[in-house]
Nucleic acid binder design. Structure first.
Lengths: 330, 330
DNA sequence: ATGAAAGCGCTAACAA
DNA sequence: TTGTTAGCGCTTTCAT
């Protein structure tokens, strides 16, 4: 593996000149620069990123903290992060935390010491202690999917509007009694959806029934299924469902199928996340699609701005809008 | 951020002693070691991995080359890799290649220069040039999901047996005419499944109909759907389907649903991959489950063996067996 | 415009 | 057992 020294020798200059030439610094004779570049090419020289990082105190790598990759919006977010990072010639380290604060803390503690230049935290969970402390140590962080407060950069969906619009749409389609299958209210995205749903109802002068709103402990298939079963048990004639996430929606669909209700004739459902999988189900779901890829991409771009000191030094919260995609559940 | 020097100063020893004490080397006085450890803790000292890597020519980082994370077995593989790597205190860099050899080559070229200690290539595609060249440069590589040949380490499923057993099972359940919806035959896993399927048929003395075997260009939802439509168009009375991957199976189910066939009464289906999502579908699929997580885990463990020079120096191909999980499609 | 030299934080060979 | 020292490959003052 060729080092800067080999290039210097071949080009008949000092290593410092090679460094200058290859990094497009001022004050290097065009001829010399060309000679250096040619030598570098000839030797297929690749700078040692460790050595450079040690000197520059910069690694051109970022860490992505995320609970999992599987069938959730986080896989799209991860793909977006990777894509934007690669564009800028950054590399991304994955840190699967299972949503466990201890694993998150261990990762942060290990990596912040000069193995990464910054962190993206993509999660819906609520604890924020480690993120805050990172922030206070001056290490660049950006949140994806959720916000904490206005002091830390974040890239999220306009959850409020997505839920508002979905509810309004269900109403427009003639639904008389709509239920919300939501996640835990200790997470801002779920709170916002809850509020959006209620506001849409209120704006139409509809009184809501608390029993039609289920804030499950967890956004999972099982919880979606159970929530729907509970709705059935209550014997009320729900004809519209707003599900906050894919897992919740898919779980609900399973219960609906078991009870032999026809979708969308007897019951309409809108899913507020809409990963690609929702298109492939036996009953393709109508969704307010959350652009996970774009969110990841923007989070990475913003993080790199923060790292490189370009762009707005003040925290910025970017909100994407969901797009309604009508399929067969409405 | 505390450096080794700070620790040395606090413990009143030389930096080399600190290094020895913290790395559990021989020949260090227990008292001194304790003093050093205490000082390190007090300062929350974390060794600078770049500096150590520069010296040791080792980064404790591995690269995972994979086409995508979304709804495919690769997300499980990635989770397995991350898990095993974290256990050994390694870190993993994700390299999403979209299956594009050029992106793969770019990643390899960038990272092999001392940013990673080795590579895991998780893909089903067929080209292997870059992997071979890595191997020939003496850089540790392990394949996951597919094999190339016996010269490079790999962790795979026993695809042959999975397809054989699934076919036999369908036959045992009374299917008279079974179709195989498979991926492209330039990929070893698909070839093996093809052979397993045929062998099971042959062992029962069943003549197969070539029209019942569809080797799609790509393992996608769309191809699964189209394959199934084609099977319907041929007007033959298929009563069993063996689908090689989730996407293919889910696509097939969509077509089956459209044609209003009852599953499993009129048509039984076994999916040969079985990611968690297949459990959540409206018709939960019976699967020969491919343990993606375990495969990723084992690939990472083997790679670390290779990196650290422990374990068998000869290439080893590990084959996991699929497990039949009966759900509602059989 | 170029070279000499220091130093990033660590490990390890050698000396004491 | 511990300290001294060199050096990993690079960037960047400071001289020239």
């Amino acid at each position: 593996m060729a080092t800067i020294r080999d290039v210097a020798k071949l080009a008949n200059v000092d290593v410092s000149t090679v460094s200058r030439a290859l990094n497009n610094k001022e004050n290097v004779n065009p001829d010399t620069r060309n000679r250096v570049i040619k030598a570098a090419e000839e030797l297929n020289y690749q700078p040692n990123i460790l050595a450079r990082g040690l000197k520059e105190r910069k690694t051109y790598t970022i860490a992505l903290l995320t609970p999992s990759f599987g069938t959730s919006v986080f896989s799209s977010v991860a793909e977006g992060v990777e894509s934007a990072a690669r564009e800028k010639d950054y590399t991304v380290i994955i840190c699967k935390t299972d949503g466990d604060p201890a694993i998150e803390a261990a990762y942060i503690n290990k990596l912040k010491n000069r193995l990464v230049d910054g962190f993206i935290s993509a999660t819906t969970t609520t604890h924020s202690y480690h993120i805050q402390s990172l922030k206070s140590e001056g290490i660049p962080v950006v949140l994806a999917v959720r916000t904490i407060d206005n002091t830390v950069d974040a890239v999220v969906l306009n959850y409020f509007k997505a839920a508002y619009d979905a509810t309004a749409l269900l109403l427009d389609r003639g639904c008389k009694s709509i239920a919300l299958i939501n996640g835990p209210l200790d997470s801002i995205p779920f709170v916002d959806r809850y509020r959006g749903h209620l506001k849409a109802l209120a704006d139409r002068g509809i009184l809501w029934d608390d029993r039609n709103i289920i804030n499950a402990d967890e956004s999972s298939f099982k919880n979606g299924l159970e929530a729907m079963e509970q709705l059935f048990m209550d014997q009320r004639s729900i004809d519209g469902i707003l599900a906050s996430t894919d897992a919740l929606a898919i779980g609900a669909m399973r219960a609906i199928r078991k009870h032999n209700l026809r979708v969308p004739e007897e019951l309409k459902l809108i899913d507020c996340t809409g990963n690609p999988i929702t298109e492939m189900l036996e009953t393709p779901l109508s969704v307010m699609e959350m652009p996970g890829f774009k969110i990841g991409q923007q989070a990475a771009r913003r993080l790199i701005e923060l790292i490189e000191g370009t762009g707005d030094p003040e925290p910025v919260i970017t909100r994407f809008e969901a797009e309604f995609i009508e399929r067969e559940s409405t």
